[in-house]
Design a protein around this nucleic acid. Structure first.
Length: 407
RNA sequence: GGACAGGUGGCCGAGUGGUUAAAGGCAGCAGACUGUAAAUCUGCCCGCGCAAGCGUACGCUAGUUCGAAUCUAGCCCUGUCCA
């Protein structure tokens, strides 16, 4: 259908919409009032990673369209663990850890959203504040009567586990109830009318909608985003080195920038639409670039996303480091640095110390395979000793570079 | 509580007494080709050691054996069915 509201048009043309519970109703509502909408985030780590970036951008779009973003931190649900991720990763975290995680995650949101008290200002809430109060009997009476086990068993998050003969604890089984309760709580106490999330959250969202209708007779809405994978089918945001974290102290900005710079050709347009604020006609021009010219678009992509997430300076520094390192063959300031002692160091130790190899054996294999370079020249002798005193460039493969700097 | 099946390296999955640091696949790393892309081909892929070698590893613990991922016992965990 064609949307009339700014919100849905914006989401639609930039590729955020996978499923919508009631397109017409939401379109109407978005035209009529400021719609508070929320997305839930996990607080298991001190940083979110690129996999959550679509949702973060979605809240940003909501605000851009003149509505109110509500960031729900799962301080309470983190104590349970979402079964949707299907591995029983129920590492119980202490309250202090969870609170610290939330504080850390908030710093990233502050780059993407404007927080405050105004009608369209973003707010952050923690579901521990209400879930923590909830008594078991009370929950069963109030909420439990609205769920049938028959129906709960049909949800993908449950069915998948059962089909794969993976264990699912009762604790996890209850997760969807609590999520549904979150939506209803926010609807009742903050007037939230919309929940968004990844396509895997569809079931949870629908539960909340149903609960709000049954308990309060209020119609609320749900939107899910398509499951984002890279063109070669991998989940977004995980690389060999680990997750691509959004917080700067979890991943250096240069590496963050490089992640986007190395995007698959086929993903460039999609990423530009989802993760940057560039106008659509500009994006159309960039994604039409062919052959090696598409690299220009990738630089823009990396710059824009890094700028949003890490700030203008970080983006500029990463770009110039990359330019100096790759195009100039020289050294950029932003590369990892290893202090070179006066007496020098063995290549193997240097590779391990700077983080290009996890063990000495791995470093040796790297050298044996011809992947280690010193100032651009392949290291052929694994016993090589690097002399101290001179600044040199140490590389693993063509992309990972570091500086060996004399004391 | 009972019967049966199962627990192998990041994941999937072979392997039923030595030749098994453990087939194969995926993921990952590197090389070639390129455009810091994809695809393809090649090499690598537990740790320590220059090396011979050593140390760890097949749910946990104890055993049998010259020798065990492979056999035995107990325990833990999971699934299916029964009560």
């Amino acid at each position: 259908m064609t949307y009339t509201s700014t919100l849905l048009r914006l989401l639609d043309e930039r590729g955020y919409i996978h499923q919508l519970t009631d397109a017409e109703g939401l379109d109407k509502l978005a035209n009529a009032q400021v719609v508070p909408g929320y997305i839930g985030f996990d607080a298991t780590a001190p940083s979110l990673h690129v996999g959550s970036l679509v949702q973060i951008m979605l809240l940003r779009r909501l605000q851009q369209a003149g509505h109110k973003p509500v960031v729900l931190m799962g301080g309470g649900t983190t104590r349970i663990g979402d079964p949707t991720g299907r591995d029983e990763s129920r590492k119980m975290l202490s309250d202090a850890t969870i609170d610290a995680n939330i504080a850390s995650i908030r710093t990233v949101f502050e780059r993407y959203l404007t927080f405050g008290d105004g009608p369209t200002d973003a707010v952050m809430v923690n579901n521990h504040d209400w879930l923590g109060q909830l008594g078991y009997i009370e929950l069963l009476q109030e909420v439990g009567t609205h769920f049938t086990v028959n129906r709960m068993l049909t949800f993908d998050s449950v069915k998948l586990r059962l089909d794969r003969e993976q264990p699912m604890t009762f604790l996890e089984f209850n997760y969807m109830i609590l999520q549904g309760y979150d939506f209803r709580h926010l609807e009742k106490h903050m007037g939230v009318r919309l929940q968004m999330g990844g396509s895997d959250q569809w079931g949870n969202i629908v539960n909340g909608i149903e609960l709000a209708r049954r308990m309060d007779g209020v119609e609320v809405f749900g939107v899910t985003t398509p499951l984002l994978t890279t063109a070669d089918g991998a989940k977004m945001g995980k690389t060999a080195a680990g997750a691509v974290w959004l917080n700067e102290d979890a991943l250096p900005s240069y590496d963050f920038w490089q992640y986007w710079r190395n995007a698959d050709d086929r993903d460039v347009g999609k990423f530009l639409r989802l993760f940057t604020d560039l106008p659509l006609d500009e994006i159309a021009r960039l994604e039409a670039l062919e052959g090696s010219e598409i690299n220009q678009a990738k630089v823009v992509l990396a710059n824009e996303i890094t700028r949003l997430c890490r700030g203008e300076e970080a983006a500029k520094a990463a770009e110039s480091t990359a330019a100096a390192t790759f195009a100039g063959g020289g050294l950029g300031e932003n590369l990892p640095v290893l202090t070179l002692p006066p007496e020098g160091i063995s290549v193997v130790d240097a590779l391990v110390a700077i983080g290009f190899a996890a063990s000495k054996g791995e470093a040796k294999r790297l050298i044996a395979g011809g992947g280690a370079r010193l100032d651009g020249n392949a290291v052929t002798n694994e016993a090589l000793h690097i002399a101290g005193g001179i600044e040199q460039r140490l590389s693993s493969g063509k992309k990972k570079h570091g500086i060996l700097r004399p004391v």
